[in-house]
Design a protein around this nucleic acid. Structure first.
Lengths: 203, 203
DNA sequence: TCCATAGCAGACTAATCGGTCTGTTTCAAG
DNA sequence: CTTGAAACAGACCGATTAGTCTGCTATGGA
């Protein structure tokens, strides 16, 4: 096999991700990507057949990283405690820490793509939907464990409660960007944890 | 004065708003706008000097409508009860009803623009920031009234709590779009009201 | 009545877009 | 050492882009 091209491919994806989060997918030209990635048209179209396929590959990589993060957060939470409520709280504390760590240029590719959904193909949109559904399913399962031990103070729908964490997460990025307040998403996730505590924590 | 042009201008803005929410601002060409609005290049550039100015005008109109909605919701809430907590809960119940009413094509122009912030001028971004700050200020003021009568069950930061409603609102749209679940935003706002109840409602 | 002007139509342009094509370089297998 | 294919470089192309320009049309004031 000739020289390795994965480095170039990664650089293209990195550059695209940064540009898309700043100016959207339609607002990011292939020329801008190759300029930022330090390659050429030939190099680009060798790795990606079209701009559409670049979007698909970018989302695929993003989803994979997201799933991996999810795995880590769940694993760490379940390791720190055997109590499902403490695990759940630890899970979102971990997500909050993750946000605050990578606080510069806050944003989520899912939201970026979904606000240009008319331009991306069904496959790519399906990947995002699946990612959200995966979060929902895992969180919902944990919530089932929680309610078994701690009955909620008031009746709540568990499926939508499982979504609430991500909803706060996604929405906080919008406000954070608009107001230029990088610490905002962390504070918002903190409130969600307080909500969970008030709902389930006895006493 | 010759014939009235405000109707055409309104049609252009309406068409733009719908297209931008579907494919973003950069993904919406002037040609697509004029085709959807049923006018021509001449008509378009008579009303707007550039595409940038169209964005500014669109956001201006959107902010104005948002402020008006805010006025109505606060007025109605304060009319229904004299208790600040009931007012606050009624406020977000009203917002929830508003979402569920206009459930088709859920989305917020603020988020759409903020995920293409690199393409819009500082003035336009400032308008959005001001809109969010206005919501924060008004909600925070109401929260101050609430805590005066109902001490929160656990200590919370009131500024970020004031933002939480909009964060849930914005984030729910992202999930709703990705999962094609139009009823999702309503359920998410319901959780935020439950949070407020658990925080402040005595008993 | 007529005419000045806002409102609008549509051909046109320069630049940029995504994508193609040809050629060159690199490197591992034979 | 040759060779064949992957990894690029960059000129090039048609289509689309935002924006311009010229001209027609409608209408209220003189």
């Amino acid at each position: 096999m000739p020289r390795d091209g994965t480095a170039t491919r990664t650089r293209i994806l990195d550059a695209t991700e940064e540009l898309v989060l700043e100016q959207g997918f339609a607002g990011t030209s292939v020329d801008a990507v190759i300029a930022s990635a330090g390659t050429t048209k030939g190099g680009f179209f060798h790795h990606f057949d079209s701009k559409q396929e670049l979007a698909r590959a970018l989302v695929e990589r993003y989803v994979a990283a997201d799933m991996e993060l999810s795995d880590e957060l769940f694993a760490r939470a379940e390791q720190l405690s055997s109590d499902p409520l403490e695990q759940l709280l630890e899970l979102f504390a971990g997500l909050q820490a993750e946000i605050e760590r990578a606080s510069s240029n806050p944003g989520c590719l899912y939201a970026s793509i979904m606000y240009e959904r008319g331009l991306v193909d069904e496959t790519t949109r399906g990947l995002i939907a699946e990612a959200f559904r995966a979060w929902r399913t895992r969180t919902r399962a944990k919530l089932d464990e929680v309610v078994e031990r701690y009955p909620p103070r008031v009746p709540v729908d568990l499926d939508s409660l499982a979504d609430q964490g991500l909803a706060v997460y996604e929405g906080a990025f919008v406000l954070s960007r608009a107001l230029s307040e990088p610490k905002l998403p962390g504070a918002q996730l903190r409130h969600f944890r307080t909500y969970l505590e008030l709902l389930f924590r006895p006493g």
